[in-house]
Design a binder for these strands. Structure first.
Lengths: 167, 167
DNA sequence: CGTAAGTAGTTTCATTTGAAACTACATGGG
DNA sequence: CCCATGTAGTTTCAAATGAAACTACTTACG
Protein backbone atom coordinates (compact mmCIF):
# COMPACT_ATOMS: atom_id res chain seq x y z
CA UNK A 1 0.00 0.00 0.00
CA UNK A 2 2.87 2.51 0.09
CA UNK A 3 2.40 3.44 -3.53
CA UNK A 4 -0.47 5.87 -3.28
CA UNK A 5 0.55 9.39 -4.11
CA UNK A 6 -0.08 12.01 -1.48
CA UNK A 7 -3.76 12.75 -2.03
CA UNK A 8 -3.71 16.15 -3.72
CA UNK A 9 -5.62 16.13 -7.01
CA UNK A 10 -3.35 18.59 -8.76
CA UNK A 11 0.12 17.19 -8.83
CA UNK A 12 1.02 17.56 -12.46
CA UNK A 13 -1.84 19.05 -14.37
CA UNK A 14 -3.17 21.64 -12.01
CA UNK A 15 -6.69 21.66 -10.64
CA UNK A 16 -8.88 19.27 -12.57
CA UNK A 17 -9.40 20.49 -16.10
CA UNK A 18 -13.06 21.33 -16.52
CA UNK A 19 -14.37 18.75 -14.13
CA UNK A 20 -13.45 15.46 -15.72
CA UNK A 21 -13.26 12.54 -13.39
CA UNK A 22 -12.58 9.21 -15.00
CA UNK A 23 -14.49 7.49 -12.27
CA UNK A 24 -17.73 9.16 -13.25
CA UNK A 25 -17.11 9.26 -16.96
CA UNK A 26 -19.83 7.37 -18.73
CA UNK A 27 -17.82 5.67 -21.48
CA UNK A 28 -15.46 4.43 -18.82
CA UNK A 29 -18.17 3.18 -16.47
CA UNK A 30 -19.91 1.50 -19.33
CA UNK A 31 -16.84 -0.24 -20.60
CA UNK A 32 -15.81 -1.46 -17.19
CA UNK A 33 -19.25 -2.79 -16.33
CA UNK A 34 -19.62 -4.43 -19.70
CA UNK A 35 -16.23 -6.10 -19.43
CA UNK A 36 -17.00 -7.47 -16.01
CA UNK A 37 -20.34 -8.87 -17.10
CA UNK A 38 -18.99 -10.25 -20.36
CA UNK A 39 -16.15 -11.98 -18.64
CA UNK A 40 -18.53 -13.63 -16.23
CA UNK A 41 -20.97 -14.73 -18.90
CA UNK A 42 -18.30 -15.83 -21.33
CA UNK A 43 -16.77 -18.08 -18.75
CA UNK A 44 -20.11 -19.56 -17.82
CA UNK A 45 -21.03 -20.41 -21.41
CA UNK A 46 -17.60 -21.67 -22.22
CA UNK A 47 -17.29 -23.86 -19.15
CA UNK A 48 -20.75 -25.28 -19.19
CA UNK A 49 -21.64 -25.52 -22.85
CA UNK A 50 -18.47 -24.94 -24.83
CA UNK A 51 -19.99 -21.89 -26.46
CA UNK A 52 -18.38 -18.57 -27.24
CA UNK A 53 -20.49 -15.47 -26.90
CA UNK A 54 -21.03 -15.09 -30.64
CA UNK A 55 -22.05 -18.73 -30.85
CA UNK A 56 -24.45 -18.26 -28.00
CA UNK A 57 -25.98 -15.22 -29.63
CA UNK A 58 -26.41 -17.11 -32.82
CA UNK A 59 -28.17 -19.97 -31.10
CA UNK A 60 -30.31 -17.57 -29.14
CA UNK A 61 -31.49 -15.71 -32.18
CA UNK A 62 -32.15 -18.85 -34.17
CA UNK A 63 -34.03 -20.31 -31.23
CA UNK A 64 -36.12 -17.21 -30.96
CA UNK A 65 -36.78 -16.41 -34.57
CA UNK A 66 -36.28 -19.56 -36.60
CA UNK A 67 -34.17 -19.89 -39.75
CA UNK A 68 -32.20 -16.87 -40.81
CA UNK A 69 -29.41 -16.02 -43.19
CA UNK A 70 -26.05 -15.02 -41.77
CA UNK A 71 -26.63 -11.51 -42.90
CA UNK A 72 -29.91 -11.33 -40.98
CA UNK A 73 -28.21 -12.74 -37.92
CA UNK A 74 -25.48 -10.17 -38.16
CA UNK A 75 -28.00 -7.38 -38.33
CA UNK A 76 -30.08 -8.60 -35.44
CA UNK A 77 -27.24 -9.37 -33.10
CA UNK A 78 -25.03 -6.44 -34.10
CA UNK A 79 -22.18 -8.72 -34.98
CA UNK A 80 -19.70 -8.39 -37.78
CA UNK A 81 -20.22 -10.74 -40.69
CA UNK A 82 -16.81 -12.27 -40.04
CA UNK A 83 -17.82 -13.03 -36.49
CA UNK A 84 -21.05 -14.58 -37.65
CA UNK A 85 -19.23 -16.63 -40.25
CA UNK A 86 -16.84 -18.06 -37.69
CA UNK A 87 -19.49 -18.70 -35.11
CA UNK A 88 -21.50 -20.53 -37.74
CA UNK A 89 -18.60 -22.70 -38.78
CA UNK A 90 -18.06 -23.81 -35.21
CA UNK A 91 -21.70 -24.63 -34.67
CA UNK A 92 -22.05 -26.47 -37.97
CA UNK A 93 -19.02 -28.53 -37.10
CA UNK A 94 -20.66 -29.46 -33.82
CA UNK A 95 -23.91 -30.25 -35.62
CA UNK A 96 -25.86 -27.75 -33.61
CA UNK A 97 -26.76 -25.76 -36.68
CA UNK A 98 -27.54 -26.85 -40.22
CA UNK A 99 -27.34 -24.95 -43.45
CA UNK A 100 -30.12 -25.29 -45.93
CA UNK A 101 -29.76 -23.76 -49.38
CA UNK A 102 -31.60 -20.53 -49.76
CA UNK A 103 -33.67 -21.14 -52.84
CA UNK A 104 -34.03 -17.53 -53.85
CA UNK A 105 -30.32 -16.77 -53.59
CA UNK A 106 -27.42 -19.03 -54.30
CA UNK A 107 -24.91 -17.03 -52.27
CA UNK A 108 -26.85 -17.40 -49.11
CA UNK A 109 -28.02 -20.19 -46.84
CA UNK A 110 -30.72 -20.49 -44.27
CA UNK A 111 -29.32 -21.46 -40.92
CA UNK A 112 -31.47 -23.64 -38.72
CA UNK A 113 -30.97 -25.18 -35.32
CA UNK A 114 -30.63 -28.93 -35.50
CA UNK A 115 -32.45 -31.10 -33.01
CA UNK A 116 -29.37 -31.04 -30.83
CA UNK A 117 -29.10 -27.31 -31.28
CA UNK A 118 -32.69 -26.79 -30.22
CA UNK A 119 -32.11 -28.97 -27.19
CA UNK A 120 -29.03 -26.97 -26.29
CA UNK A 121 -31.01 -23.79 -26.65
CA UNK A 122 -33.59 -25.10 -24.23
CA UNK A 123 -30.82 -25.95 -21.86
CA UNK A 124 -28.85 -22.72 -22.07
CA UNK A 125 -31.76 -20.30 -21.92
CA UNK A 126 -32.67 -20.85 -18.30
CA UNK A 127 -29.05 -20.62 -17.28
CA UNK A 128 -28.75 -17.34 -19.15
CA UNK A 129 -31.85 -16.01 -17.46
CA UNK A 130 -30.60 -17.10 -14.12
CA UNK A 131 -27.35 -15.23 -14.56
CA UNK A 132 -29.28 -12.14 -15.48
CA UNK A 133 -31.51 -12.57 -12.47
CA UNK A 134 -28.54 -12.92 -10.17
CA UNK A 135 -26.83 -9.90 -11.59
CA UNK A 136 -29.96 -7.89 -11.10
CA UNK A 137 -31.20 -9.38 -7.88
CA UNK A 138 -30.75 -6.24 -5.86
CA UNK A 139 -32.33 -3.88 -8.32
CA UNK A 140 -35.77 -2.50 -8.68
CA UNK A 141 -37.61 -3.87 -11.74
CA UNK A 142 -38.57 -0.41 -12.90
CA UNK A 143 -34.96 0.72 -12.69
CA UNK A 144 -33.93 -2.31 -14.71
CA UNK A 145 -36.34 -1.47 -17.48
CA UNK A 146 -35.22 2.07 -17.65
CA UNK A 147 -31.59 0.97 -17.72
CA UNK A 148 -32.25 -1.27 -20.68
CA UNK A 149 -34.07 1.52 -22.40
CA UNK A 150 -31.25 3.86 -21.64
CA UNK A 151 -28.69 1.49 -23.09
CA UNK A 152 -30.65 1.20 -26.29
CA UNK A 153 -30.81 4.95 -26.68
CA UNK A 154 -27.17 5.32 -25.86
CA UNK A 155 -26.27 2.86 -28.55
CA UNK A 156 -28.31 4.79 -31.07
CA UNK A 157 -26.77 8.06 -29.99
CA UNK A 158 -23.29 6.61 -30.42
CA UNK A 159 -24.14 5.35 -33.88
CA UNK A 160 -25.64 8.65 -34.87
CA UNK A 161 -22.53 10.50 -33.72
CA UNK A 162 -20.27 8.04 -35.47
CA UNK A 163 -22.06 8.59 -38.71
CA UNK A 164 -22.25 12.33 -38.45
CA UNK A 165 -18.54 12.77 -37.81
CA UNK A 166 -17.37 9.69 -39.50
CA UNK A 167 -17.15 7.48 -42.53
CA UNK B 1 -48.94 -28.42 -33.06
CA UNK B 2 -50.21 -28.01 -36.65
CA UNK B 3 -47.37 -28.09 -39.11
CA UNK B 4 -48.12 -24.97 -41.11
CA UNK B 5 -46.40 -22.31 -39.04
CA UNK B 6 -44.77 -19.83 -41.38
CA UNK B 7 -43.88 -16.64 -39.51
CA UNK B 8 -44.23 -17.75 -35.89
CA UNK B 9 -41.42 -17.16 -33.43
CA UNK B 10 -41.04 -20.82 -32.57
CA UNK B 11 -39.86 -22.51 -35.68
CA UNK B 12 -37.21 -24.78 -34.30
CA UNK B 13 -37.21 -24.54 -30.56
CA UNK B 14 -40.85 -24.24 -29.71
CA UNK B 15 -42.42 -21.28 -27.96
CA UNK B 16 -39.76 -19.15 -26.33
CA UNK B 17 -38.08 -21.13 -23.60
CA UNK B 18 -38.83 -19.42 -20.31
CA UNK B 19 -39.09 -15.96 -21.72
CA UNK B 20 -35.61 -15.22 -22.99
CA UNK B 21 -35.39 -12.57 -25.62
CA UNK B 22 -31.92 -11.61 -26.67
CA UNK B 23 -33.09 -8.14 -27.42
CA UNK B 24 -33.97 -7.46 -23.81
CA UNK B 25 -31.21 -9.50 -22.27
CA UNK B 26 -29.07 -7.28 -20.13
CA UNK B 27 -25.63 -8.69 -20.87
CA UNK B 28 -26.41 -8.35 -24.53
CA UNK B 29 -27.73 -4.80 -24.31
CA UNK B 30 -24.77 -3.81 -22.20
CA UNK B 31 -22.22 -5.27 -24.52
CA UNK B 32 -23.78 -3.75 -27.60
CA UNK B 33 -24.07 -0.31 -26.08
CA UNK B 34 -20.55 -0.45 -24.71
CA UNK B 35 -19.13 -1.51 -28.05
CA UNK B 36 -20.88 1.28 -29.88
CA UNK B 37 -19.66 3.89 -27.41
CA UNK B 38 -16.14 2.49 -27.27
CA UNK B 39 -15.82 2.43 -31.00
CA UNK B 40 -16.89 6.04 -31.22
CA UNK B 41 -14.58 7.20 -28.47
CA UNK B 42 -11.65 5.13 -29.61
CA UNK B 43 -11.84 6.62 -33.05
CA UNK B 44 -12.07 10.11 -31.72
CA UNK B 45 -9.00 9.76 -29.51
CA UNK B 46 -7.06 7.96 -32.14
CA UNK B 47 -7.83 10.40 -34.91
CA UNK B 48 -7.40 13.56 -32.94
CA UNK B 49 -4.68 12.76 -30.44
CA UNK B 50 -3.11 9.50 -31.48
CA UNK B 51 -4.13 7.89 -28.23
CA UNK B 52 -5.48 4.42 -27.60
CA UNK B 53 -8.10 4.02 -24.91
CA UNK B 54 -5.67 2.56 -22.39
CA UNK B 55 -3.29 5.44 -23.05
CA UNK B 56 -6.07 7.91 -22.60
CA UNK B 57 -7.10 6.32 -19.33
CA UNK B 58 -3.56 6.46 -18.10
CA UNK B 59 -3.23 10.13 -18.92
CA UNK B 60 -6.61 10.85 -17.38
CA UNK B 61 -5.77 9.19 -14.11
CA UNK B 62 -2.33 10.76 -13.92
CA UNK B 63 -3.84 14.14 -14.69
CA UNK B 64 -6.40 13.69 -11.99
CA UNK B 65 -4.37 12.11 -9.27
CA UNK B 66 -0.74 12.91 -9.89
CA UNK B 67 2.16 10.44 -9.91
CA UNK B 68 1.25 6.79 -9.53
CA UNK B 69 2.90 3.42 -9.97
CA UNK B 70 1.73 1.20 -12.77
CA UNK B 71 0.15 -1.11 -10.28
CA UNK B 72 -1.88 1.72 -8.79
CA UNK B 73 -2.96 2.77 -12.25
CA UNK B 74 -4.04 -0.73 -13.07
CA UNK B 75 -6.14 -0.89 -9.95
CA UNK B 76 -7.80 2.44 -10.46
CA UNK B 77 -8.57 2.04 -14.11
CA UNK B 78 -9.41 -1.67 -13.98
CA UNK B 79 -6.81 -2.48 -16.59
CA UNK B 80 -4.56 -5.48 -16.78
CA UNK B 81 -0.95 -4.90 -15.84
CA UNK B 82 0.11 -5.88 -19.34
CA UNK B 83 -2.18 -3.27 -20.80
CA UNK B 84 -0.81 -0.66 -18.44
CA UNK B 85 2.74 -1.64 -19.27
CA UNK B 86 2.18 -1.25 -22.99
CA UNK B 87 0.25 1.97 -22.68
CA UNK B 88 3.07 3.33 -20.57
CA UNK B 89 5.73 2.36 -23.08
CA UNK B 90 3.92 4.18 -25.83
CA UNK B 91 3.47 7.31 -23.76
CA UNK B 92 7.05 7.33 -22.53
CA UNK B 93 8.24 6.99 -26.10
CA UNK B 94 6.16 10.01 -27.03
CA UNK B 95 7.51 11.88 -24.01
CA UNK B 96 4.07 12.43 -22.57
CA UNK B 97 4.91 10.50 -19.44
CA UNK B 98 8.10 10.23 -17.45
CA UNK B 99 9.27 7.56 -15.11
CA UNK B 100 10.90 8.57 -11.88
CA UNK B 101 12.50 5.94 -9.68
CA UNK B 102 10.37 4.97 -6.76
CA UNK B 103 12.71 5.41 -3.84
CA UNK B 104 10.99 2.98 -1.54
CA UNK B 105 10.90 0.18 -4.10
CA UNK B 106 13.40 -0.61 -6.80
CA UNK B 107 10.99 -2.67 -8.91
CA UNK B 108 8.60 0.16 -9.31
CA UNK B 109 8.57 3.62 -10.82
CA UNK B 110 6.46 6.65 -10.30
CA UNK B 111 4.82 7.72 -13.51
CA UNK B 112 4.29 11.43 -14.01
CA UNK B 113 2.86 13.48 -16.83
CA UNK B 114 5.52 15.51 -18.57
CA UNK B 115 4.81 19.12 -19.45
CA UNK B 116 3.65 17.98 -22.84
CA UNK B 117 1.55 15.27 -21.24
CA UNK B 118 -0.12 17.74 -18.94
CA UNK B 119 -0.84 20.00 -21.87
CA UNK B 120 -2.34 17.12 -23.78
CA UNK B 121 -4.46 16.24 -20.80
CA UNK B 122 -5.80 19.78 -20.71
CA UNK B 123 -6.56 19.48 -24.36
CA UNK B 124 -8.21 16.08 -24.36
CA UNK B 125 -10.35 16.53 -21.27
CA UNK B 126 -12.81 19.00 -22.75
CA UNK B 127 -13.16 16.88 -25.86
CA UNK B 128 -13.88 13.87 -23.71
CA UNK B 129 -16.48 15.78 -21.77
CA UNK B 130 -18.04 17.02 -24.92
CA UNK B 131 -18.45 13.54 -26.28
CA UNK B 132 -20.08 12.49 -23.07
CA UNK B 133 -22.38 15.49 -23.21
CA UNK B 134 -23.38 14.72 -26.76
CA UNK B 135 -24.07 11.11 -26.00
CA UNK B 136 -26.22 12.12 -23.09
CA UNK B 137 -27.80 15.21 -24.52
CA UNK B 138 -31.31 13.81 -24.57
CA UNK B 139 -31.27 12.35 -21.12
CA UNK B 140 -32.44 13.58 -17.82
CA UNK B 141 -29.54 14.37 -15.43
CA UNK B 142 -31.11 12.36 -12.65
CA UNK B 143 -31.46 9.37 -14.93
CA UNK B 144 -27.82 9.73 -15.90
CA UNK B 145 -26.70 9.64 -12.32
CA UNK B 146 -28.75 6.61 -11.56
CA UNK B 147 -27.42 4.89 -14.66
CA UNK B 148 -23.84 5.46 -13.57
CA UNK B 149 -24.70 4.19 -10.14
CA UNK B 150 -26.37 1.20 -11.63
CA UNK B 151 -23.34 0.38 -13.75
CA UNK B 152 -21.12 0.51 -10.73
CA UNK B 153 -23.31 -1.89 -8.82
CA UNK B 154 -23.60 -4.18 -11.78
CA UNK B 155 -19.85 -4.35 -12.06
CA UNK B 156 -19.59 -5.28 -8.41
CA UNK B 157 -22.30 -7.88 -8.74
CA UNK B 158 -20.49 -9.44 -11.70
CA UNK B 159 -17.24 -9.55 -9.79
CA UNK B 160 -18.91 -11.04 -6.77
CA UNK B 161 -20.49 -13.75 -8.89
CA UNK B 162 -17.24 -14.43 -10.68
CA UNK B 163 -15.49 -14.97 -7.39
CA UNK B 164 -18.17 -17.08 -5.85
CA UNK B 165 -18.37 -19.52 -8.74
CA UNK B 166 -14.85 -19.24 -9.95
CA UNK B 167 -11.22 -19.30 -8.88
C1' DC C 1 22.50 -12.49 7.28
C1' DG C 2 20.39 -15.90 3.88
C1' DT C 3 17.06 -18.07 1.70
C1' DA C 4 12.05 -18.92 0.51
C1' DA C 5 8.10 -16.78 -0.89
C1' DG C 6 6.00 -12.79 -2.82
C1' DT C 7 5.31 -8.59 -5.93
C1' DA C 8 6.22 -4.93 -9.96
C1' DG C 9 6.75 -4.90 -14.41
C1' DT C 10 8.10 -7.08 -19.03
C1' DT C 11 8.05 -10.53 -22.56
C1' DT C 12 6.16 -14.33 -24.97
C1' DC C 13 2.61 -16.76 -26.90
C1' DA C 14 -1.91 -18.18 -28.31
C1' DT C 15 -6.45 -16.29 -29.15
C1' DT C 16 -9.74 -12.85 -30.66
C1' DT C 17 -10.97 -9.23 -33.51
C1' DG C 18 -12.32 -6.65 -37.64
C1' DA C 19 -10.72 -4.31 -42.01
C1' DA C 20 -9.70 -5.40 -46.58
C1' DA C 21 -9.23 -8.49 -50.29
C1' DC C 22 -11.34 -12.16 -52.45
C1' DT C 23 -14.92 -15.66 -54.44
C1' DA C 24 -19.20 -16.74 -55.99
C1' DC C 25 -23.55 -15.47 -57.16
C1' DA C 26 -27.27 -11.70 -58.41
C1' DT C 27 -29.28 -7.88 -60.82
C1' DG C 28 -30.09 -3.92 -63.73
C1' DG C 29 -28.96 -1.48 -67.86
C1' DG C 30 -27.46 -1.27 -72.44
C1' DC D 1 -27.60 -11.69 -73.84
C1' DC D 2 -23.56 -9.59 -71.52
C1' DC D 3 -21.24 -6.73 -68.76
C1' DA D 4 -20.92 -3.49 -64.67
C1' DT D 5 -21.96 -3.07 -60.31
C1' DG D 6 -23.57 -4.92 -56.01
C1' DT D 7 -24.12 -8.31 -52.18
C1' DA D 8 -23.40 -12.92 -49.13
C1' DG D 9 -20.05 -15.15 -47.15
C1' DT D 10 -14.99 -16.58 -46.59
C1' DT D 11 -10.12 -15.85 -46.13
C1' DT D 12 -6.16 -13.24 -45.00
C1' DC D 13 -3.65 -10.16 -42.39
C1' DA D 14 -2.36 -7.06 -38.77
C1' DA D 15 -3.53 -5.27 -34.32
C1' DA D 16 -5.28 -5.89 -29.57
C1' DT D 17 -5.76 -8.77 -25.73
C1' DG D 18 -4.60 -11.35 -21.56
C1' DA D 19 -2.67 -15.76 -19.44
C1' DA D 20 1.61 -17.59 -18.20
C1' DA D 21 6.47 -17.48 -17.92
C1' DC D 22 10.15 -14.68 -16.77
C1' DT D 23 13.32 -10.96 -14.45
C1' DA D 24 14.45 -8.11 -10.91
C1' DC D 25 13.67 -6.65 -6.68
C1' DT D 26 11.54 -7.02 -1.68
C1' DT D 27 10.03 -9.02 2.50
C1' DA D 28 9.38 -12.44 6.09
C1' DC D 29 11.34 -15.82 8.80
C1' DG D 30 14.74 -19.04 10.59
Amino acid sequence: MPDAAPPGPETAAGPAAGQLRLDGYLPYRLSVASNAVSRLIARAYEDRFGLTIPQWRLIAVLGESGPLTQRAIGTRTVMDKVTVSRATQGLVKRRLVQRAPHDADGRSHRLVLSQAGARLYQEVSPVALEYEARLLQHFDPAAIDSLKQFLRHLEQAAEALAESSGP
